[in-house]
Design a protein around this nucleic acid. Structure first.
Length: 542
DNA sequence: AAAGTTAGCAACCGCACTGAC
DNA sequence: GGTCAGTGCGGTTGCTAACTT
């Protein structure tokens, strides 16, 4: 098929011209947008000749001048497109070769929808051409029920340059997760932050409140995260439940070891049941601590991933599977046999991370700056050993009555005033948009509190990294505190750290509230998937 | 063979962003 | 800091060829 200019010499589509051209408009030298009507539609060979001649004589650039001086009734942008996509002498015509197709797949796996960058890697090919090819390919494979990325692509380790590139693009907010751009109200950058979180501290998946994860359309999570891991392609053709069944080592445990899938997920229990298990079984469920290596509480698994929606076998399911995003890193994380990064690889990754400050600056694309302040503040406080801490709240965190303390603190949490003067009390009441599906306070608190009630009277040691954190180092049951504990290491000074953590938690929640406010205005119509995405945004940021 | 449908492609549009002035 | 040109990108439209009924 050809729609080249050779065939459209006589073609004059009905919409070809915006308005009837004046006889001598072409040479009037009128400015763009003036009285000079601009032609639209397919280019004729005559126009091509004019444009080619002009560019040959004057070179590329200043495209509006082309329209002015060449006599073409085309806007500069159209001229540029025509030249770039069809008239450039170095353009390669015809179908993509298998090598080119392979390269496109690989490039897309690395770059996502960066068509121009991909085109730069494919001499003679244009970004538009690649985009059209890719979109067509997606549709075709979607129809066929095939994964977009072949297994060999998914399992290919990335070279160091790629990793570096990914690190730099990490902050750009538009590279790593291009394909899970807002889909069903789930924003890609949030996941990015989530991924970072797991790199920033040791991957403790139970840090993420099940409630927030449950909000995310399963297909998104599965597709955008899990299936970005090396053997996602294999998984993508499986029923969500079967994936769990088939993935022997699917999620990293608290110490980075893969957690074997639980047998209970091998049955045909509905996703709702599974989801319920996550809601009720939080990180604070003592079952976690009592879990054997083969019998891990569902809370310690990556919750939303497991909440596979059986209905996700719809086309959209496959569609969302081809997400390069995390793959760019996941690809470097390990062989296909270990879908999630090994602890070693994560450690390596962490070692390559920039400084904490850089992290906050570069790796949190959507941070509002408040998190920077938090990190900066925390580091400042952390570094000033001799500084007496402002907080006078003396808490014996090893107190056997810690459960009461937890609850008390949790209740008081909303009233905490941070060092920056932010009050978190308004986080949910003011900052969070309240709707039937949105993330409201009670919805958030209840599961957690309910789980807090289950706080074991006997705290079991938790294997973390190379050390065992004892109960008195891990008394906090709030996810934010737990997280921060992970981030900043074991608490050496319980009093100081606790106050610090409270501040950070408060600030983060304030940030959450601010984000929610912003998003409330922009996503008010897209809250049909449980909690609004800002919830996930904020929580994943945490 | 004709009509209807679908797939693929070229082109356009709108928006966002960057860099030069 | 504002304006403009250029660029990149996602989404969409419109057309034609191929396919189906």
């Amino acid at each position: 098929m050809s729609m080249t200019s050779e065939s459209d010499e006589m073609m004059m589509p009905k919409n070809d011209i915006d308005s009837p051209p004046a006889a001598d408009d072409a040479n009037s030298g009128g400015s763009v947008g003036g009285n000079n009507p601009l032609k639209k539609g397919p280019w004729t060979s005559a126009e091509d000749a004019i444009l080619s001649d002009y560019v040959t004589k004057h070179g590329e650039g200043n495209w509006n001048a082309v329209q002015k001086h060449s006599g073409l009734d085309r806007c500069g942008k159209s001229c540029r497109l025509r030249w770039a996509n069809h008239l450039r002498p170095d353009l390669k015509k015809g179908a993509f070769s298998p090598e080119e197709e392979q390269l496109i797949i690989e490039l897309h796996a690395k770059m996502g929808n960066k068509w121009a960058r991909m085109a730069a890697e494919l001499p003679g090919r244009t970004d538009n051409e690649i985009k059209n090819y890719w979109n067509t390919r997606i549709k075709r494979r979607q129809r066929a029920g095939l994964p977009i990325y072949p297994p060999d692509i998914c399992s290919q380790p990335l070279n160091e340059n790629q990793q570096t590139d990914d690190m730099t693009t990490f902050s750009s907010g538009d590279v790593l997760y291009p394909d899970f751009m807002p889909v069903n109200n789930f924003k890609a950058p949030d996941f990015k932050i989530f991924g970072l979180t797991h790199q920033f501290y040791q991957p403790t998946l139970h840090d993420i409140p099940a409630t927030s994860l449950l909000d995310i359309p399963t297909s998104n999570l599965l597709a955008q995260n899990l299936h970005s891991y090396p053997n996602k392609t294999l998984l993508s053709n499986m029923h969500p439940v079967k994936r769990l069944r088939g993935s022997e080592s699917f999620f990293p445990g608290p110490n980075g070891n893969a957690i074997p899938n639980r047998n209970q997920y091998s049955n045909d229990s509905s996703s709702a049941q599974i989801a319920q298990s996550f809601i009720c079984s939080s990180p604070y469920d003592h079952n976690y601590h009592n879990s054997t290596s083969n019998q891990v509480s569902s809370s310690s698994l990556f919750p939303a991933v497991l909440i596979g929606n059986p209905s996700s076998s719809e086309p959209g399911w496959a569609m969302k599977l081809e997400l390069p995003s995390l793959q760019t890193q996941a690809g470097s994380w390990g062989p296909p046999s270990s879908p999630l990064p090994s602890l070693e690889s994560v450690d390596t990754f962490i070692q390559n991370l920039p400084t904490e400050h850089n992290l906050s600056c570069n790796l949190l694309p959507q941070n509002s700056g408040l998190l920077d302040a938090v990190l900066y503040e925390s580091q400042t406080i952390k570094n000033s050993k001799e500084t007496s801490y402002a907080s006078n709240m003396v808490v014996d965190i090893t107190d056997t009555a810690s459960q009461d303390l937890h609850e008390t603190e949790w209740e008081a949490y909303g009233r905490t005033i941070s060092h920056l003067g932010h009050s978190s009390s308004s986080v949910f009441s003011e900052g969070t948009p309240v709707s039937a599906n949105s993330f409201d306070e009670s919805e958030f608190l209840e599961p957690i509190q309910g789980c807090n009630v289950k706080e074991p009277t006997t705290l079991h040691p938790i294997q973390y990294d190379d050390k065992v954190e004892t109960a008195d180092e891990m008394v906090f049951t709030r996810p934010d505190l737990w997280l921060v504990s992970d981030c900043f290491g074991p608490m050496k000074d319980p009093i100081r750290d606790q106050s610090l953590l409270k501040d950070i938690g408060t600030l983060l929640c304030d940030d959450l509230g601010r984000d929610c406010k912003k998003m409330d205005t922009s996503t008010s119509s897209s809250q049909s998937h449980g909690h609004d995405s800002c919830t996930w945004n904020a929580m994943s940021t945490v």
